[in-house]
Design a protein around this nucleic acid. Structure first.
Lengths: 202, 202
DNA sequence: CTCGATTATGGACAATTGTACAATATACGC
DNA sequence: GCGTATATTGTACAATTGTCCATAATCGAG
């Protein structure tokens, strides 16, 4: 909104070049590599651009290290998509021009080793809008608050996706499907709590 | 399943170290940086590990370039989560040990500039399991097949999320909510087609 | 007009860094 | 026991690479 707008065309090109390399090649360019790509004959010419980008907050660099350009704007996620605004909001076009971004890597912190995904089988949670074939993002933890959607392991060593309701002497595992009945078990182990849902639409 | 399993503990550690740096710091390590982290005093000691990782297909390197380590297993995405298997599948524990991964960056190719996200407002698509507050992932395109979920701009310049049904002289935009009626318009512009849904569960 | 920011050239230096070669030790399967 | 893969040390070299200095043209703002 501000930082990006303040860039000159040249700087924007350089930034895009760096970003493209990190994204597609997996590692960033050297100062001279950038120079080559833009016909800048002197390393110092490139350094000027890098300093400008750093000053404007788009990148970070670490002194004396090769290829040590860090993207600040989309720091650790590649799954940052431009967010176009709310659908009901009418003037969608304008919203798209903004550069708000939804960063799924931030939503579901991938560096968090306690997250895992699980493909959903069946319609037991359909009324919570979790359908067959969806992936639920689960945080590994052993406890849950009443009513949370959990992945639980019942006595019979069966894993299920249900809402979690502890009662006096038993646990009620309730599906979100009015045609199905809750399951009551004495013991159930929580494997994790659902923190997200991801679906690929055909 | 094969590649990761074939790794020695040491190699796995080195791989994780590289991956961690690329993920969290934004750029990979030098040969000597790896050596330092693992008390390997000679650059060559590290190179051996890198060669092993390359041979086993986990990384790629480019000759004579600094920090030029490319991760092959999760090439361009940071949103790769371990996939624990299908929930109904019973023996979930074992499934978690596998190293299948769901790669959201692959599911929704972030390098694709024609993708954007949109926050959903309202319950008009609730029967397609798209709820208020969800984010739909949309591919910018101007046409759609009959029945696809599209983001459309109607005559009144209002953006809506509906199923797309072209008819003879008009277009039917159908909500997935039996309490709502389809909208009929003469002209509607398709802004994009829904390719995914992402939800954050509180 | 002058000042600052932008965008460059050219050359030089020193540190970083990948690679190569020569050895060694351990573990494992045959 | 012997060969192969793993894991490591040590040294050396040459190329890569970041940084710095001096210099300068262009352009918009004050």
């Amino acid at each position: 909104m501000e930082s990006l707008a303040a860039l000159t065309d040249r700087q924007k090109d350089v930034y895009e070049f760096i970003r493209h390399l990190i994204r597609h090649r997996g590692y960033g360019p050297t100062v001279r590599e950038i120079g080559e790509a833009f016909q800048i004959r002197s390393p110092n010419g490139v350094v000027c651009h890098l300093k400008a980008l750093e000053r404007k907050g788009l990148i970070t660099r670490e002194a004396n290290r090769s290829r040590a350009i860090q993207l600040v704007a989309e720091p650790l996620s590649r799954l940052a998509l431009p967010l176009a605004g709310r659908i009901a909001a009418g003037a969608l076009h304008e919203a798209i021009e903004q550069d708000e971004r939804i960063d799924l890597g931030e939503m579901f912190d991938t560096s968090d080793d306690d997250l895992f995904a699980l493909e959903v089988s069946g319609d037991s949670m359909i009324e919570d809008q979790i359908a067959d074939g969806d992936y639920v993002i689960v945080r590994r933890q052993k406890t849950a608050r009443k009513g949370q959607i959990v992945v639980a392991l019942t006595d019979e060593n069966e894993a299920t996706l249900k809402r979690w309701f502890p009662e006096k002497n038993r646990i009620r595992l309730e599906p979100a499907n009015s045609s199905m009945k809750p399951i009551f078990v004495k013991n159930a182990k929580i494997l994790g709590v659902v923190v997200g849902v991801v679906r690929k639409v055909a």
